[in-house]
Design a protein around this nucleic acid. Sequence first.
DNA 1: TCCTTAAGGATAAAGAATATCCTTAATTAT
DNA 2: ATAATTAAGGATATTCTTTATCCTTAAGGA
Lengths: 161, 161
Amino acid sequence: MILKSQVEWVLHCCAILSALPENKYLATKDLAEFHGVPKEYLSKALQSLSQAGLLVSTLGPSGGYRLAKSPSDITFLDVIEAVEGNTPTFACTEIRQKNPCRPKGYCEPAPCGIARVMWEADEAWRQSLRAVTLTDLSRMLTEGVPPALLQKSFEWIMART
Amino acid sequence: MILKSQVEWVLHCCAILSALPENKYLATKDLAEFHGVPKEYLSKALQSLSQAGLLVSTLGPSGGYRLAKSPSDITFLDVIEAVEGNTPTFACTEIRQKNPCRPKGYCEPAPCGIARVMWEADEAWRQSLRAVTLTDLSRMLTEGVPPALLQKSFEWIMART
DNA sequence: TCCTTAAGGATAAAGAATATCCTTAATTAT
DNA sequence: ATAATTAAGGATATTCTTTATCCTTAAGGA
């Protein structure tokens, strides 16, 4: 069980977009080049973020994507769920109903205990990811990085907005 | 991102095995029939549990599997990791190193902040699953179930040990 | 001696992840 | 106007993982 590589990509993209000035857009092409990932496939993931209401897009030259809201209002979970969907990682197939001793037509009163435990763990995971915003991300990704590299990266991005 | 169906299967199997008397074994065939899942494929998963030291197997007629230790000493996480492996759900590919502004040969001082957040969420998930044992599972799976059904199921199993 | 069983290797089928390509429509710059 | 640029989305291909199935081997019990 492993997350899509797109999750890593879009989180890095969000960090970049967090640094953009108001109403500036950055194109998929540039985000793909900056991160060394395939443009077309990254595009699919960014479309998902757009549909989830996390990004705003615009067409034409100088078009691309920007954040739809403040970085402090976008969490890791928002981004991940936009790409991965929000279906639980555990799919209960109710195999207890296959029990050969079970009376025909018997109806279980509650969800299977196994599913409940798994869903609770899922929720712990989500809770942890809900607690981190893009603002936190920006801080984490910049601290410890040489100022010269930060500056150069910033200029690289700004030259393409 | 979804867990293998084998995870559900072996958790149910562990619940059954928890109910076995000391030094009694139940065969893959019976576990597969009870849960209505393919015997050969279930077998692979049980082999994983065995290799992980959670189950003990024995050959020949009246052979099969039993728990290798007390149900209170086996957690959900133990079982899940035996089947799924313990590789983190987030695989950091270090795409920050693709940054075109990054000096050649520059070495990052610490793991990527994104990976750290993801790994922390992973740990929250694991922590939640470490907190539930097979003893807890037995209780959860039996409460609310009609005593007649429990009894019949127990007899079904005992008849095959 | 014969039957049953786990272990494990080989292989196949189905589905998901990872792309690539193309068309369309909107927007901007010239 | 026109041409260039861009996101959106459909179609398709490739690779990898999951989900099996089959077979052989060796061990244990009747």
